[in-house]
């Protein structure tokens, strides 16, 4: 689900469904169903998550400000390279402090669960593709990435896994190397 769709807090559900009363009910119900399906999200993370994220933002701001100061602030007449990043970093620090103070009890975070590990595996396959691309060309890593995602992360059957991975890679080969003649590293010369 898109993050632009915040979960209503408990007790606000009634209000949410009443807002769009001027629109036709059918579309409304459809939207609700779609929303409900997607709304089975992990529980909210709670104050610890809020504080952690605010602290991280604070850290980014402080590090930015410190580095920017080192680049030279200059003057208003002759702004140095560090002036603008310094201003922005200070803004970040202020916003982080505000978050620390007022954001503790927001409920828009999500707990990490066991399935969050899947995300790490998924990201790792992308990184592997990035490393292998210049070394062995894109074909083999692309097929492998397809296999990992379809078979192991997606639970597809071996047959459709193989067919889809190979066909997708072949399609990209044709598209990038022939239709668009983009110099993508590749192994098979046709």
């Amino acid at each position: 689900m898109s993050e632009t769709q915040p979960r209503p807090a408990p007790g606000a559900d009634q209000g949410a469904s009443d807002v769009d009363h001027e629109h036709d009910i059918l579309a409304e119900i459809k939207a609700e169903v779609a929303q409900d399906l997607a709304d089975e999200r992990p529980p909210a993370g709670g104050p610890a998550y809020q504080v952690a994220s605010a602290l991280f933002v604070l850290l980014v701001g402080l590090a930015g400000a410190w580095l920017a100061y080192g680049y030279g602030i200059g003057s208003l007449r002759r702004p140095g390279p560090g002036l603008w990043p310094f201003i922005v970093s200070c803004l970040i620090v202020v916003l982080a402090v505000v978050l620390l103070v007022v954001g503790r009890h927001l409920d828009d975070t999500e707990k990490f669960t066991r399935s969050s590990l899947l995300v790490a595996v998924g990201a790792a396959t992308f990184v592997a593709l990035g490393f292998l691309l210049p070394v062995v060309g894109f074909e083999i890593p692309a097929v492998l990435l397809g296999i990992v995602w379809l078979r192991f992360l997606g639970g597809e059957s071996w047959r459709s896994t193989i067919v889809i991975s190979v066909l997708t890679t072949a399609a990209f080969y044709g598209l990038f190397l022939y239709a668009l003649s983009v110099p993508l590293p590749h192994l098979i010369a046709l």
């Binding site: 210049p134 060309g137 110099p183 993508l184 590749h186 010369a189």
Partner: peptide, 8 residues
């Protein structure tokens, strides 16, 4: 050493 960005 078979990788290439173009055809040769």
């Amino acid at each position: 050493g078979g990788v290439q960005t173009t055809a040769g």
